[in-house]
Nucleic acid binder design. Sequence first.
DNA 1: CCCAGGTTCCTT
DNA 2: AGGAACCTGGGT
Length: 840
Amino acid sequence: MVESLFAEQDFLEKNSGNNFADIILPVPIPRMFTYQIPPLLKPQIQIGQRVIVQFGKKKVLTGIVGKVHNKPPQAYEAKPILDILDDQPSVNPLQIRFWVWMAAYYFCHIGEVMFAALPSGLRLSSESKIQLNPNFDTETSKYPLDVREEKILEALEHKPELSYEDCEKILGVKTIHPILKSLVAKEAILIFEKVQEKYTPKVETRIRLTKEISESKSALEAVFEGVAGKPKQESILLKFLRDVPVFQKPKLNEKGVDKATLLEEGDSESSLKTLIKNGVFESFKHVVNRIDDEKAVREAYELSSSQATAFEEIKTHFESKQSVLLHGVTGSGKTEIYIKLIQEVMESGSQVLLLLPEIALTTQIVSRLKKVFGSQMGVYHSKYSDNERVEVWNGVLSGRFSFVVGVRSSIFLPFDSLGLLIVDEEHEPSYKQFDPAPRFHARDAATMLAYFHQARTLLGSATPSFESYFNATQGKYGYVEINHRFGDARMPEYHLADLSADRKKNLLKLDSTRMMREKIQAALDKQQQVLIFQNRRGYSPYIQCEDCGWTGQCVQCDVSLTYHQFAEEMRCHYCGYKEKVPQSCPACGSTQLTTMGMGTERIEECLSLLFPEARMGRMDLDTTRNKYGYQRLLDEFGAGQIDILVGTQMITKGLDFGKVTVVGIWDGDRILNFPDFRAGERAYQQITQVAGRAGRRDIKGQVVIQSRNPDNELFEKVIRGEYYEFFRQEMFDRKKFYYPPYVKLVKITTRHADFKVAEKAAHALHREMATIQAKKIVLGPEKGIIARIKNQYQYESMIKLDRGGNTLAIFKENLAKILEELQSRPEFRSVRWVVDVDPS
DNA sequence: CCCAGGTTCCTT
DNA sequence: AGGAACCTGGGT
C-alpha cells in the first residue's frame, strides 16, 4: 500500500552538521536536487521550509527542503541554497511523506505534486528582466547600435524594466536573446532576475481623529467652527462621530473607521483629504483578513433517532476500522451527523477536513457549517484567489483553522494532526483529477492521508461508488446505512415517459412527452418549482447541413463543434476553439442548416415556448463561469424568482429547496449510453441524485424520465431503490470481464502530432510491456475515443492488473524503465506518454 | 554569408 | 517546464 516511505531519521527537526539538502522543485523531472547548505543557513534549515535556489544557468526557483544529509553528490558540484524563505516550515514532514506517496502511486514526479499542492501564492519563480545600464550613454558609446537595438533602448526610456516577452512584442520577433546578448556586450543594458513574492496581505486604509483633536473637547469644537459653511466636511465629521463617540470610547477612535465605509454615501474624497491636511483626521494602514471572521452560533439540535443510531454506529466502527462508509438516502440528513462528529473530534484537539465536490461548495451546506463553526472553519475553494488560498494555508499552519471544508486540492493543506477526514458525495467522479498530473483521486488520497495521520475516514453518499461499497461488503470498511429521509419525507414517485410511443401517437411537442408537460404544468399551477436535468450544455450538439450532411468540425480535435445559440458560435468542448456559425454550408452552399440534438440552452428555449408564463433559468458551465454566477442563480431560485431551472450535473448538488416538486430527466438514454464499464453505476447514481432533489417533508416529489427504452432494467432498479441488487448484478459482470474493483486499471495514452509516429510508439510500448512479469492483461492500443485533441493524435492502452500483492508496484517500476528507454529512441523523442492510475 | 526558426539537451 | 546552445534551410 505505502509505496515509498522516508526513513524516520530524515525527519529530524533541526539540522546538525549536515552539509547538503535535497530540494523538491516544481519541475517535471523525476528526482529531487541536491544543493549545498551554506554555513550561515545551516543552524536554521528544516525540512519543509521554502528555499530559493538557482536552477539552470540563471533561473531562480522556490523549492521545498525534502531531505537533509551529508552525502556530497558524486557527479557534480552542488550549488548553494541562496536563501531560506520561512522561519517555520510551510510544509510539514507528514505532507512530504504524502507527496512522495502520491508521486509513486499516481506515477508522476514529486515536483508535479508540489506544483499542485502549493498555492501559487507560495511559489515564486524568477523572471529575467532587462534594464538600462546606468553607465551607458548613447553619445559616448564606442559601439554602433542597429535599428532593433535602438528600439529596445527607446522602450527602456519609458519603462524602467522589460521582460523577454515585452521585448518580443516590441520587435515582433521570437528570438530576441541574441539581440539582448549583443546589447549586454555593448554595455547598454543589464539582465537581472526578478523574484516576486506573490502573496500580498490585504490592507485597508482606516481613518481616525488625530491625537490633538481626540483628547480635547475644545479642539473638536474649534474644528466644528472651522467647518461651518462647509457642508461636505461637516457631514463627514458628523458621520464619523456618530460611529465613534470619541470621548466616551477613545479606544474606538484608535481602531479607526474603514475609509471606504466612511465615504460610502457619496461623500467626496477631497473633503476628507482637506480634513486630513488640516490635522483633524489621520489615515493609517491596517492589515485585514480576507476571510471574514464569523461568530459561531451554537445552535442546539437533536439528531433524529435514525441519525443518532448512525452516529453511534460510526463511532463503534471507528474503534476497529480506519474507514467507514455512510450510505444514507438523499435527504437523510448526513450533514447533522458530520457536524456532531466534527465537534467531537475538534474538542479532542484534532483537526478535521471535510471534502466536498466543487459545485456543492457554493451551496447552503457551507453557510450552514459556518454558522456552527464560525471562525474556526476555513473554506478552500477553487474560485478563491491566490491570496485567499494562501490565507487558508497559513490559517491551517498557525492553528487559526482546525477545521477545513474544501475541494479536492484541500488534501494538500498543511495539517499536522488530522483526526477525521470526511469525503461527502464520495462517489462523485469529479474527485478524480484528469489533467494535469498528479492524476489523483481525492477520496483515495484522503484515505492514505488519514493513514499517515492515524486518523479516521468517513465516506458519505446516497449512492456509494462500487469500489467503496465493495470494500464495505468485504469488511474492509465499516458500513452504516440510513434508510429514512429526515423528518420522514417520502421518497419521490417515478414516471417513465416513453419518447417513441409519444412520437408515434404524435404527442411529442418540442421533444417533450405528454407526461413531462403535464407534470410541469401541475407544478406551475401550484406555484411549485421544477428542475430539468440534461447532461449536455450548449444549444445543441451540432449543426448539420440538410442537403449534404456537413457538420462543423474542430480544426484541432476530431470532434464536431457544439452550437451555442446565445453567442451564435460553434465551440469545441475539448480545446475551447470557437468559430462563427456560417451563413451557408461550407461544403455545398446550401442554406438549409439545422440543429441536431439538445443541450441545456435549447431545452430552456423549448420550455419557454411550451410554458410562456413560467420564469426560466439555466445553470451550466456557461452561466456559472464567473465567481458569483452560480450563487446568483441559487439565490434567485431559492427566492422563488425562477419557476423552471434547466441544468447539467450542477443542479444535482446541494439544491435543497422545499418548493421543488418535479424533476425532469430530459434524455434518460443519454445517461445510459456511456462508453465505459462504469456506465451502469454512473447512470444509477445520476438518476438517483437528480431525483433526490424532488419533494421534501410534506410534498411527495415527482420524477419524470424521458426515454426511448423505458423498459431498461436499470430504470426499474433505480425506481425501486434496489441498490444492492443492482450492485450484485454489476459486480458479476465486473468480475467476469476483469474490471475494478476486481482488478487495478492503468491507462496509458500515447500522444504525438504525427499520427503515424503515435501509432508506432503505442505499438512499441505494447511490445515492451509484454515483457513485464506481472499478472496482467494488456488491451489496445486503440485510437482514442477522440482520435485527436489539440492537434495531438492519441492512442490508448488499458492495463488490467491483479489486485493482489505488489503487482501494481512491480508493473509501475518496469513501466518507468520502459518509458525511459522508449523516450531515448530518437524517433520517439517528442512522443508524450501520459499514465493514469485508477482512471475514471 | 546571415538570420529566423526549429530541435535537442540539460538542469543539482 | 524552460532556457540556451546547436542545427538547418532559405534568402541574399
